[in-house]
């Protein structure tokens, strides 16, 4: 099967390649590996803590063309979405959009995992920040957080 035009476009001109400051409390970083092939990917999101909207996303992939295209597409998709909405991203959406052949499905899984892992990292950071100072992140206080800060 021939690779789709969309795939080739994202592969030849990937969007959002790069890095964000991983020390920034509003940046979540995901680092994941594909056990099937041994490739690795880092994906980062920058979130507006007030609105929970993902304002920027960057990635760096050491993987095949399909992995590069998948992460290019995934970062484009999550930008402008809330963290909650981005959690719903499925690798099957990527497979469909890029028309990936079955042997390349694990490459799209890598991108989904990377988004989820970046979100998890962001949430962890937020929790820590709230734990240390419950006044940070107004409106997000809950019982657990208050307990953490004691």
């Amino acid at each position: 099967m021939a690779y789709s035009d969309k795939l080739i476009e994202h592969y030849e001109r990937p969007l959002n390649v790069g890095t964000l400051d991983k020390e920034d409390p509003n940046v979540g970083s995901g680092l994941v590996g594909a056990p099937a092939c041994g490739d690795v990917m880092r994906l980062q999101i920058k979130v507006n803590p007030e609105t929970q909207v993902i304002e920027d996303a960057k990635f760096k992939t050491f993987g095949c063309g399909s992995a590069i295209a998948s992460s290019s597409l995934a970062t484009e998709w999550v930008k402008g979405k809330t963290v909650e909405e981005a959690m719903a991203l499925k690798n099957t959406d990527i497979v469909k959009e890029l028309n990936l052949p079955p042997v390349k499905i694990h490459c799209s899984v890598l991108a989904e995992d990377a988004i989820k892992s970046a979100i998890a990292d962001f949430r962890r950071k937020q929790a820590v920040a709230r734990g240390e100072d419950p006044d940070v992140g107004i409106g997000q206080k809950d019982e657990n957080v208050v307990q953490l800060s004691k």
Binding site: V32, G33, P35, V40, R42, K60, F62, D113
Partner: peptide, 12 residues
């Protein structure tokens, strides 16, 4: 799944 962040970091 490899979920040792240290190892993944090293590979990266």
């Amino acid at each position: 799944r490899e979920n040792d962040p240290g190892f993944l970091m090293e590979v990266m």
